[in-house]
């Protein structure tokens, strides 16, 4: 399969999930559910790589994407003021997508996956809250927290279907996607997220601005991910090329930014 076909697979899956989550009022006020392409690419990596993919797993993927839509939605809530109609419905959109994920798995039924995903959501919520707690942690500890936030849900799904061999790639890939979004929001909206506020307090980044810190993290992680993907014994060559293209987009973006600077 070439890159165009793989992209087509991703697009089809995304459209399928968005159709299942369609809600007229929510669409009108909050827009489409937020499922980042990067997130979906890693959730679907085993499928793109040709793993046996029965209907049950396809339905489970929908549920996993719904969980991401719920949590991504709740990340849009303003810390201090959520009184607008749009914000109120964003709260409910997340709750609705959560309900839909449970309903999807109850219908299959896959109660074991409900358990795994709810454990993951609990852990992810604890880690998201940690970003607001005034606790000193090392950069390694913060990195682990970010890893839990971004990848625990997908990792639980992979474990459920004995696809553990993808976990290392997925963990690193999903954190990279998050860092990329952090950088984007910093550049476009000049927004300092709780994670960025933590980064700038780390001694090892003293004298660096937020953008420089993020660039360094992205650059290091991209290099690591490129090594992991290239050396992977499970990925097919065309899937490696496809995934590397996306990692390298990140690296190139860094180079471009350095050029601007």
């Amino acid at each position: 399969m070439n890159a165009a076909i793989l992209e087509e697979h991703l697009l089809q899956s995304k459209n399928n999930i968005l159709t299942k989550l369609h809600h007229r009022t929510l669409l009108q006020y909050t827009g489409q559910p937020i499922i980042f392409d990067g997130q979906l690419r890693y959730i679907l990596l085993p499928k793109l790589n040709g793993e046996h993919w029965p209907k049950k797993i396809e339905q489970a993927v929908n549920a996993v994407a719904m969980v991401y839509a719920a949590l991504n939605g709740h990340e849009q809530i303003n810390e201090q003021d959520a009184a607008t109609k749009r914000q109120q419905l964003t709260v409910l959109a997340g709750d609705y997508y959560s309900g839909m994920y449970y309903a999807t798995l109850a219908k299959i039924p896959d109660i074991e996956l409900v358990r795994s995903l709810s454990e993951a959501v609990a852990k992810s919520s604890e880690s998201r809250t940690a970003l607001y707690e005034p606790m000193k942690r090392s950069m390694d500890e913060w990195y682990k927290i970010l890893e839990v936030i971004e990848s625990t849900i997908t990792c639980q799904f992979l474990k459920r279907f004995n696809l553990d061999s993808y976990i290392e790639i997925v963990k690193n890939g999903l954190v990279l996607e998050r860092l990329k979004r952090e950088l984007q929001s910093l550049q476009e909206k000049h927004m300092k997220t709780p994670f960025l506020k933590i980064l700038e307090q780390q001694q090892e980044y003293a004298g660096m601005n937020n953008e420089q810190i993020l660039r360094r993290l992205i650059s290091n992680l991209s290099s690591r991910l490129i090594r992991i993907i290239t050396a992977s014994p499970i990925l097919q060559d065309e899937v490696k090329t496809f995934m590397l293209q996306h990692v390298e987009v990140n690296v190139e973006a860094q180079i471009t930014m350095k050029g601007v600077e």
């Binding site: 949590l71 810390e79 959520a82 997340g94 919520s125 604890e126 809250t129 607001y132």
Partner: peptide
């Protein structure tokens, strides 16, 4: 609000 969202989740 954000912590309340996480608490609810």
């Amino acid at each position: 609000n954000r912590v309340a969202m996480y608490a609810g989740d």
